[in-house]
Amino acid sequence: MRPAFIDPVFGAQEAFRALMDAMARPGRIQRCDVLPDLPEALAPAAAAALLALTDAETPVWTDATGEARDWIAFHTGAPLVADASKAQFLLATRAMPKLSTLDSGTDETPQDSATLIVQLDALAEGAGWRLTGPGIEHEHRLDAAGLPDDFAAQWAANRKGFPCGVDLVLCTGARLAALPRSTRIEEAG
């Protein structure tokens, strides 16, 4: 079994701060490089996010298999569920599940919604989508490669349900950016 955080206390803290900054400033890319030795299928940023946030109290769904799946089960202690709609956290290492199939909370408890972590091919600031909303002064630009073709439509539907909705963490290697449900995405025109 490959190791988790070398330092469980500070590793988790560093990963969380990257996530917090990412969620507070949607589209800004944060670095999180605290897991040097991982199963090949896992991106360091995505694995760190999962490790920092999940445990026996949080049902997790993932499409990872083999060593990567075992690593997640062992190091987080989280119950792995087969039904994506029952998961509080999801890690998609390949195609992401449709947002509309995930738990988006209720009007009284929108915080019970899922957080979806997606591993992508590439992530870059300064080009691509125009993001606006809470956490963004004017606009942030973000280019994310590897999402489904109808992602913009899925996201618009997700955003429309505010305050309900799924929150997204996009990861490539040791880099991550977040899209909270409040963010508006305009495709680059």
Partner: peptide
């Protein structure tokens, strides 16, 4: 931390 992230997502 989980609560904080959801709090940020739902201002």
């Amino acid at each position: 931390r989980r609560a904080i992230l959801k709090a940020i997502a739902i201002p």
